[in-house]
Design a protein around this nucleic acid. Sequence first.
DNA 1: CCACTAACCTAAGAGCTCTAGGTTTCCTGG
DNA 2: CCAGGAAACCTAGAGCTCTTAGGTTAGTGG
Lengths: 194, 194
Amino acid sequence: MSPRMGLTGERVTMAAAELADEDGFANVTVSALARRLGVKDASLYSHVRNLRDLRVRVGVLATEEISDRIAPAVAGLSGHRALAAFATAIRGYARDHPGRYAATQLRVEPEEWGDSPGPRRAGELTLALLRGYDLEEPDATDAVRLLRSTVYGFIDIELTEGFAHPRELDASWERILLALHHTFTDWKNHESTD
Amino acid sequence: MSPRMGLTGERVTMAAAELADEDGFANVTVSALARRLGVKDASLYSHVRNLRDLRVRVGVLATEEISDRIAPAVAGLSGHRALAAFATAIRGYARDHPGRYAATQLRVEPEEWGDSPGPRRAGELTLALLRGYDLEEPDATDAVRLLRSTVYGFIDIELTEGFAHPRELDASWERILLALHHTFTDWKNHESTD
DNA sequence: CCACTAACCTAAGAGCTCTAGGTTTCCTGG
DNA sequence: CCAGGAAACCTAGAGCTCTTAGGTTAGTGG
């Protein structure tokens, strides 16, 4: 309404994040965002390189926000409690901000991060969690992959409602985290079997 | 080149699947497909309802093909061997046909399946595999979810090259499947712990 | 050989991304 | 206080996309 509304890179990114949560990440589009901001499409290109850049910004923002939830959630915890807090923080974020979370799945090269420490922090938090299980390489790497795959896969399927059965998702979630915990705990005892 | 090249719904779907594998599922587009087939965009709308329909067809086709790989792979196997054969059949398909596999992740309502038994068969094969671990409900449901989440998550991350560390992915894969096997085997012993 | 079905076309509207270049607002320093 | 420049915002337009409406032409059964 005002002749200048003072848009900036950050403000545009925030608006894109809100748009993502409301209408889905696939609908984060230059023109949709321009409409929402009451501005012409071309005006956004002063703040954002292109569509890809806009989406990456949302993804980086989401990664930062997830790290900001994980860190306090796991503080002072260990073992199963830490694992559950870690994974549930991510899941809670995905529920609260499905569009932002979806942006997280973009493959984004380190040089695209800009100056954000978000993505690196997320990796460090994962490593720190697994350190509690006393795994040496290469087991730690495998464990990180298992954790990421499981949490990522569960949330993604949950968000797209791909789980057909009616059993409470929360119960499945708890059960799966427990299984992960036991897997990490007993990692060394399972070296080779059939 | 010929005045009529005899396109049909199936032929269009196959061409779309090939396009998906070559250029990525995101590039499965009406106009790209028309270009590849040497036909005008509008001509495809006699064979396909719209873009969504085109993509769903690729997804359903992929689900059928995956089931066709799983069934013979697990035939006659049980326990860890069956689990590994099951999961590796899916992973192999995803590597051979990344675009088709990506189409699998579309959320598609049963009424969109058309007359294909593919999606139902895939569910049945999963259930059959888990039956070998002698789990009663609701454990079986949880186990199916864990299996789906893990396999789905690992493959997805692998395809988008999101694994930063250099350790062989194959070794991680074997290790993760082994962990899953033990989880299913010991499911009942892990009922509640901390 | 004729009629019908289905394959394929042209034409066109509407939405999207992105560039080039112009105008207006706002802040800053002299 | 007001000049000047940076930055916010604009118009215009090219080129791609999906999709519909309606017309033309090729193959097939009677």
